[in-house]
Design a protein around this nucleic acid. Structure first.
Length: 209
DNA sequence: AACTCGGGGCA
DNA sequence: TGCCCAGAGTT
């Protein structure tokens, strides 16, 4: 059993409640929500999108909004100017280049304005159940702390994790790692005393033991 | 690789 | 108050 497999089993035991924190209905809504979630909390995104998707449930209704209107509707979330600009452009790219459908592959998703590898991966995995491995700041920090990856960029960590775990474990492992990062392996002063993988963690061995 | 955007959450 | 956050684009 590899270290990655072992971490998977231990974390699975600890976080039976692990899941994606974003509320959404359709793939289109998940795409928008994930774009909004950059450098913001799920909670603030869910608060804003709950009413937003009732009024504007799909691409065509979003297309009626001006960039300024989008900006005003997401003002409670950080980086709203950038996000509104990117979403406004992305909506039109979906219409013009993708027949109004959310693309189901990494390359087309990443070609959309404001969509990077992390957002594209989340949409593939959560909306379409297509294997991918999103790496956000939590996953990046944790995989390096434990010693599952020594890669220096999120893209490389994503590739490394995919190579170390069987495909069917990718989806849950992503949820386990972000949950671990939110509840236990936090950025400052991680709660190593409450951590279920401390026995295989490089950070714990080097700093706390 | 470093910088910028940004309001909200939390100490 | 001050610091950080489920990122992406630009230089």
């Amino acid at each position: 059993m590899t270290k990655a497999d072992k971490a998977y089993e231990l974390l699975k035991e600890s976080y039976p409640h692990a899941k994606c924190g974003l509320d959404y209905g359709t793939p289109f809504q998940l795409l928008v929500s994930t774009m909004l979630s950059a450098q913001a909390t799920d909670k603030s995104v869910n608060q804003v999108t709950e009413d937003l998707y009732k009024q504007y449930p799909d691409l065509n209704s979003f297309l009626e909004l001006t960039q300024e209107e989008i900006e005003n509707k997401i003002r409670k979330i950080g980086l709203y100017k950038n996000k509104a600009k990117n979403i406004y452009k992305m909506l039109r790219e979906l219409k013009e280049r993708h027949n109004g459908e959310v693309p189901k592959n990494m390359e087309d998703l990443m070609s959309l304005s404001g969509v990077g590898r992390k957002t594209a991966s989340v949409v593939l995995v959560e909306a379409f159940k297509i294997p991918a491995f999103p790496v956000d700041t939590h996953v990046f920090r944790i995989t390096r702390r434990i010693g599952l990856s020594t890669a220096t960029t999120p893209d490389k960590v994503s590739d490394e994790m995919m190579s170390k775990l069987p495909k069917y474990k990718w989806h849950l492992m992503h949820h386990l790692l972000i949950t671990h990062g939110r509840e236990t392996c936090i950025a400052q002063n991680p709660k190593c005393e409450a951590c279920s993988v401390s026995n295989i963690c490089n950070y714990f061995r080097n700093n706390k033991k």
